[in-house]
Amino acid sequence: MHILGVNTTHAGIFGETAAYYGTVEQQGRLTLHLHLLLWIASALSPQEIRDKLMSQESEFQKALIDYLETTHRGEFLTGDLAQVRVRVPNAPRKFGSGIHEIIENNDDMLYVPGYKDPTQTLPEIPPPLCKSESIECTNNHCPECVQSIQWWGKYEETVDDILLRSNMHTCKPMYNDDTVIKSTDTASQSAVKRSAYRGCQNREGECVKRFPRDIVSESAVDPDDGHLDIKKLEPMMNTITPELTYAIRANTDVTSLLSGTAIKAVVSYVSDYITKQSLKTHQIFALLADIMEK
């Protein structure tokens, strides 16, 4: 609630919250996954936004793009994928690779003794603010400012670490040895396969999750129809909010709904999860048995 600014004295990271609704889904691997709709107070309707964009109001366009680029993005904070992959430390296999196990041990990745996977740790609170009364502190040796700069640097590195581990999509065929049930499989093996991630590529090899996404080098408004393309530099990453990634420390997907069609689609999608049946008891015990055997 602190992030959304609900029941607090400050606004949330997306603005003043008018309403929200979310539901937590238990995935097949027994991890929790949140689906949430957020309404911003005093926000314009999609049609009102389109009308303003079509009217060529430069100040409104700039303000809207600045807001959207601040609240969600589709790239890393400290560089591109290749740069982040080399810079992010790789935890030894015996310590695990996080609940997502997205990346494997790689000789090209940096090894740092004592490094901890951020998906298995809690966020570090920021240091106290500078006590200077001026807008910008001029003391180069101000301890609060030094700590703040160091914290923000570590914050960006941590966010990129989490994104690399949990938000980089990897296409995988739907029909593979992990999901196809064979006549020789035991009941436990069959249950695990039924609840396993089935991949995203159909029989034609197309990704049903719509990856890779289009790269947009710079945010822009189409003057003909008012369509807004937000900057996005990583084709295999969904859009995220860095502050949410840092706090939740897992895969997140943040999307601004700027059309009636998108709103209806997402409301339907979230509603489907609200009414989704939970795992059957025998599937839960089969998964637990499989986990204990590892």
Rank of each mutant, 00 (worst) to 15 (best):
F76D: 00
A82R: 03
E75T: 10
T70P: 07
L44C: 05
A43E: 13
D66K: 12
F76W: 04
Y67E: 09
P89K: 09
Y67C: 13
L36G: 02
L37Q: 07
H35A: 03
I65E: 10
Y67R: 11
L38H: 11
L36W: 10
G96S: 01
S55C: 09
N90I: 12
R50C: 12
A41W: 01
A91E: 04
E69G: 10
H35P: 06
V86I: 08
D80N: 05
V86W: 01
F95C: 07
L44M: 09
E59L: 14
E48I: 01
V86N: 00
R87W: 00
A43S: 13
K52G: 12
S42F: 02
S97P: 04
D51S: 14
L44D: 14
H35C: 02
E75F: 12
D51A: 12
P89M: 01
R50V: 00
E48R: 11
S45A: 07
Q83H: 02
E57T: 00
P92S: 01
S45M: 02
L64N: 12
E57Q: 14
S42V: 00
K52M: 13
L64T: 06
Q61P: 11
L37C: 04
R50T: 06
L77Y: 03
E57C: 13
L68D: 07
L37K: 02
L44I: 00
D80E: 07
D66W: 05
I49D: 14
L38V: 12
F60E: 08
R85V: 09
Q83R: 02
Q61T: 15
K94N: 06
D66P: 09
H72N: 14
T78F: 02
H72L: 13
I65R: 09
S58G: 03
I65W: 10
T70Q: 15
I65H: 13
L53Y: 13
F76R: 00
W39R: 07
A41I: 00
S55L: 05
G79T: 04
I49V: 15
R85D: 08
P92K: 00
L37P: 03
R85E: 09
A91F: 03
V88E: 00
S97K: 06
P89V: 06
P92N: 01
S58Y: 05
R50D: 11
V86A: 06
W39T: 10
E69D: 15
Q47E: 15
S55D: 13
S55Q: 12
A41Q: 13
F95S: 04
Q83W: 02
Q61C: 15
R73Y: 05
L53P: 15
F76L: 02
E69F: 08
A91I: 10
Q56R: 15
F60K: 09
